[in-house]
Amino acid sequence: MTDLLTRPASRRPPVEDRLNRRGSLEAREPGRPRRSLVVALVLACVTLMTLDHVDGGTAVDPLRRLVGEVYGPAESGVDAAVRPVVAVPHWLRSLHDLAGRIDDLQSENDQLRSQLATSDYDRNRLQEYDDLTATAESIGYALVPARVVGIGPAQSFSRTVTIDAGSRAGLKPDMTVVNGAGLVGRILRVTSTTATVLLVVDADSTVGARVGRSMKVGFLHGRGDLGQQARLDLELVDQTYVPAKGESVVTWGSQDGAPYVSGVPVGRVESVYSSLRETTQRAVIEPFVDFSALDLVGVVVPSGTTSDRSVIEADGRLR
């Protein structure tokens, strides 16, 4: 504005018209800035930049503060209003993520929980497999591994269990069933996929046995009890022999290994009773096997038996 006043009237007529190159009078194109205005504003910008450049911008700071006082609250207000809206896609995204993660964690949790619940079981089963393998090695027979899937009811008074291997696994009646600890029983009958095992603790079970150290033979009878108090009674053929406490008892064995193969540990002598009246003595045998917690068992099969599952060979390898 100032240059308008200071300039001579001839150069800048009050009507804002001026002469063009062809010498004719022409109105200044409306809206076109005067050069002086441009220069002034550019200079203002440069001044501002210079002011801000020197001295760390202390000269501009009050201006910044002034503008900030006005626009800062507006910005924060809009931001506060806008943030929830802007965050919606993020929420949706993260909600989706979180839902997925919850699912993942849930399943992982379940898995871990079931692992936790079965870890002891698994460890025991692994131990049992190891033991079974060791048994196969130590007793020198091939074993078909099987698991106890059912235990006969106590009111039947017959101590039997069902295992999940049958004729397809190469099982036949009168096969010896062992586990990692020792003798379990013998197979009574088989189906194609299961077999019924008579436990040695059954009252009807009779097993030919041999006292390990002296090789004296006798017969083991079950009492029908399961659990910790399950005991076997050993009736020795030689009435004069008194087995020592703690002596281990193994199976005597029968012809062709049926129903019991020889040399399978059964238990150890817990106590000896002699009945003068009957002129016999009875040894109480504590079985090695915990019949109340049977799980993995092995069925002694002839080496080379074709089976629908792996067979633990006598040398401990799987076939």
Binding site: T47, L48, M49
Partner: peptide, 22 residues
Amino acid sequence: GLLLDLAPPADHYAGRWALALM
């Protein structure tokens, strides 16, 4: 541009946006 130069988030030298927006 001046407002843009001075309003809170700005930290550049004042006058830059003023010049640019001019």
